[in-house]
Amino acid sequence: MKLPSSAWQLSPEHAARDELAADVRKGLRATPKRLPSKYFYDARGSALFEQICEQPEYYLTRVELDILQQQAASMAQVIGPGALVVEYGSGSGIKTQLLLAALEAPVAYVPIEISSSALDTSLDELAARFPDIQMLPLCADFNTTVSLPRPRREPRSVLIFFPGSTLGNFESAEALRLLKVMHAEMGPQGAALVGIDLKKDPKVLEAAYNDAAGVTAEFTLNLLHRLNRELDMDFDVEQFQHRARYNVLAGRIETHIVSRADQQVHLDGATIEFAACEKMLVEYSCKYALPEFARMAAQAGLAVHQTWTDDEQRFAIQLLRRV
């Protein structure tokens, strides 16, 4: 296995204003309107997401952590020694600690995280706990092509770590494309360890995205605060509300920001009209049955090598290898 030899650099915390403005302009001109969920994660958004994970309705993080705590040793045995661990969207790093502690002699850890504040926080803790593991952070959007940094020691394999059911935030075509990126980056001896949320009672699913404390609503609407701050927009945030509902036919939670009234917002001199009750899509959270996920992985040239799940079949962590 040969890693790219090109030098690596930390990219800026925020996308360039022109890129952000172009994405927002395109989304607000679409029918229906939509905004990319990746822009949730400024410093405030990242902190709010950590609070979401602590809400009683949000079972996903607790269940996945339980699986990792109970099965990390089994996962490490299947993965083998000397891995270069590449994590997409590293977040707080709690799950990463469990994995790195279980793995045999990992050579380096490469977190790819769009929020530099979340990256800095997790790396401080990880570097202190794992002084023998080289830390090679990349502050970037993992949806873009990046060159992996070369570690001091040659790894025996590459492990892509993608926990948290984040793959479910992509539409089917985008999720498939990302699985193909994993296929390319893992190399012939590598693997991907992917968390997926499983289909279940819609009431349980909807409660997870509509917590009683309102943290998820605050997280969603924080996107508008970010656009006001970084693009000089004029969203009246109080005139919008969070709405998350489960689409049974599509098998996904669909999160929208809904206008409470007829109103206007402005971006670089352009006026965008919102009608009362108009919905703006901001996130999908797809849920899978194990057989349908295996079929999607197969389209990317990957096979499910092993599955770990909780007793109630609420969540699964799957190890994927090249076919």
Results as ranks from 00 to 15, higher is better:
residue 27 G to M: 07
residue 238 E to R: 14
residue 10 L to M: 12
residue 313 Q to M: 14
residue 303 A to S: 12
residue 242 H to K: 13
residue 121 T to W: 02
residue 290 L to A: 03
residue 142 F to V: 09
residue 304 V to G: 08
residue 31 T to H: 03
residue 197 D to T: 11
residue 60 L to C: 08
residue 314 R to M: 15
residue 136 L to P: 02
residue 243 R to F: 10
residue 166 T to S: 14
residue 297 A to H: 04
residue 259 S to H: 11
residue 294 A to H: 07
residue 307 T to A: 09
residue 207 A to M: 12
residue 104 E to L: 02
residue 173 A to Q: 12
residue 148 L to I: 06
residue 58 Y to Q: 11
residue 218 E to W: 08
residue 213 A to K: 14
residue 239 Q to K: 15
residue 284 Y to D: 05
residue 39 Y to G: 04
residue 277 C to T: 15
residue 82 G to I: 06
residue 230 E to D: 13
residue 140 A to I: 01
residue 75 M to F: 11
residue 28 L to T: 09
residue 56 P to Y: 14
residue 120 D to R: 14
residue 24 V to D: 01
residue 107 V to S: 01
residue 258 V to T: 12
residue 118 A to H: 01
residue 313 Q to A: 15
residue 125 E to G: 00
residue 144 T to L: 07
residue 31 T to K: 08
residue 56 P to L: 13
residue 191 A to T: 09
residue 259 S to K: 11
residue 188 P to F: 06
residue 193 L to S: 13
residue 197 D to H: 10
residue 40 F to P: 04
residue 306 Q to H: 13
residue 294 A to T: 07
residue 123 L to A: 07
residue 288 Y to M: 03
residue 61 T to D: 03
residue 141 D to A: 07
residue 308 W to E: 10
residue 306 Q to Y: 00
residue 219 F to M: 15
residue 173 A to I: 02
residue 154 E to V: 06
residue 182 M to T: 07
residue 36 P to H: 01
residue 283 E to K: 05
residue 163 P to I: 00
residue 277 C to D: 15
residue 138 L to D: 01
residue 154 E to M: 08
residue 169 N to M: 02
residue 9 Q to S: 10
residue 155 P to C: 05
residue 52 I to P: 02
residue 64 E to T: 14
residue 53 C to Q: 09
residue 62 R to W: 07
residue 38 K to T: 06
residue 151 P to I: 10
residue 216 T to N: 14
residue 57 E to D: 09
residue 250 A to K: 14
residue 242 H to V: 11
residue 62 R to D: 05
residue 61 T to R: 08
residue 135 M to F: 02
residue 321 R to E: 09
residue 117 S to E: 14
residue 229 R to H: 11
residue 185 E to H: 13
residue 72 A to Y: 03
residue 48 L to W: 07
residue 197 D to K: 12
residue 59 Y to G: 00
residue 63 V to D: 03
residue 292 E to N: 06
residue 203 K to P: 00
residue 143 N to G: 08
residue 163 P to G: 03
residue 19 E to Q: 12
residue 58 Y to G: 13
residue 311 D to A: 12
residue 110 V to A: 01
residue 223 L to F: 02
residue 269 G to E: 04
residue 267 L to V: 12
residue 293 F to L: 05
residue 34 R to I: 00
residue 199 K to D: 06
residue 242 H to S: 12
residue 152 R to L: 12
residue 240 F to Y: 15
residue 195 G to P: 12
residue 107 V to G: 02
residue 50 E to R: 11
residue 317 I to Y: 08
residue 73 A to N: 06
residue 152 R to I: 09
residue 290 L to V: 03
residue 91 G to Q: 03
residue 166 T to L: 04
residue 40 F to T: 05
residue 67 I to T: 06
residue 185 E to W: 11
residue 299 Q to S: 09
